[in-house]
Design a binder for these strands. Structure first.
Lengths: 183, 183
DNA sequence: GGGCAATCTTTTCACTGTCAAGTTCGTGTT
DNA sequence: AACACGAACTTGACAGTGAAAAGATTGCCC
């Protein structure tokens, strides 16, 4: 009574990426395996290889997708007239809602080094962030400071290091980012 | 012409931890394996197991050691009369100099959950950090903000995301942390 | 000196990533 | 409409990994 699945999956690449997101949110990036993903999707153990070549290839694709999603979210908030604080809140919201993507994005030891799609997506997100502080003295320093603040909060929050508070993460970001970056 | 090494290593636990630090600084936490470490130290592949039980046990021990080292460094700077900015600089310096420890410390998916030695060491470091902002309105928020700022900078720096700048990392921290936390 | 427990080794097992070779299928060509 | 071509997937194999069990070696304490 096997389920008679067709030989061609249809959109295996998408399905594997989604399964990877699911697996990572459950067990972290270390607990994800190609064979396990293949099983979840209902495909032979070497099926994903054809789309990603490598485990590193899969995670690189995931990271690139993550940076693209992030860049979209940031672009959208500036298009809606948001200021720096709104940008920071959007950053944190992305990290919390797309925890799996976010965790992979900043682990270069899991990536295929120098992947063009990844570097392009990352640059897009970086530009969107830097645009929020372009009108300051020493904008480079300001952009690094702003990025550090929200990135640190996001990673600390996601790793559970801030678990003692029961406050709302976005409200916290809005509070201290506002007091630090709005003169 | 085998090297006639004695049956008992002497201090295998220490040696494995050191080898792990070396391996992680080279290939990242994903690229470290128990068998590989055993080889580096010159011991049978199951030797380390007796000291750490698990791969998770090894990494948990490393993380605990890291938090202890960090707490020591922070305590030392307050003992030397340092202010918040000095604390932040010490944090970043630790992350850069003990990159391997630092990378493992904030990856709870690699830890044995609820390990007492780890949680105690982490609390010690947390207390040392929070002590720097105890005299502010809403000290909890201030401590989270300060921690986020330096932690974010440290991780971004270590992952190479800030590679475009050739400035000195400590000087950068001192610059923006000063402008943000000294009234 | 004798025994005991800690330390390390050997063997084995299930599992993983990767490669090479085959099989099935959509798609465009004529 | 038949066909061939290439993309998508499967099958089978291999080396390497983490973990567990059982055996060998040694320092140490009475």
């Amino acid at each position: 009574m096997t389920t008679e699945r067709p030989y061609h999956h249809g959109d295996l690449r998408r399905a594997v990426l989604d399964a990877a997101v699911e697996a990572i949110t459950e067990h972290g990036p270390a607990g994800v395996g190609l064979r396990d993903l293949a099983r979840r999707v209902g495909v032979s153990h070497a099926g994903p290889v054809h789309h990603f070549k490598d485990k590193a290839g899969l995670l690189t694709a995931l990271a690139a997708e993550g940076f693209t999603l992030l860049a979209d979210a940031l672009d959208q908030t500036v298009a809606a007239g948001g200021d720096i604080v709104d940008l920071g809140v959007a950053y944190v919201r992305f990290a919390v809602e797309h925890r799996a993507h976010f965790e992979v994005m900043f682990r270069p030891d899991l990536h295929r080094p120098g992947d063009p799609a990844l570097t392009e997506a990352r640059d897009r997100a970086g530009a969107a962030l830097a645009g929020g502080v372009a009108d300051r003295p020493d904008p480079e320093l300001a952009s690094v400071a702003a990025w550090s603040l929200v990135h640190g909060f996001a990673t600390l929050w996601n790793t559970g290091a801030l678990s003692r508070t029961d406050r709302d993460p976005e409200a916290m970001v809005r509070a201290f980012a506002g007091s630090m970056f709005l003169t």
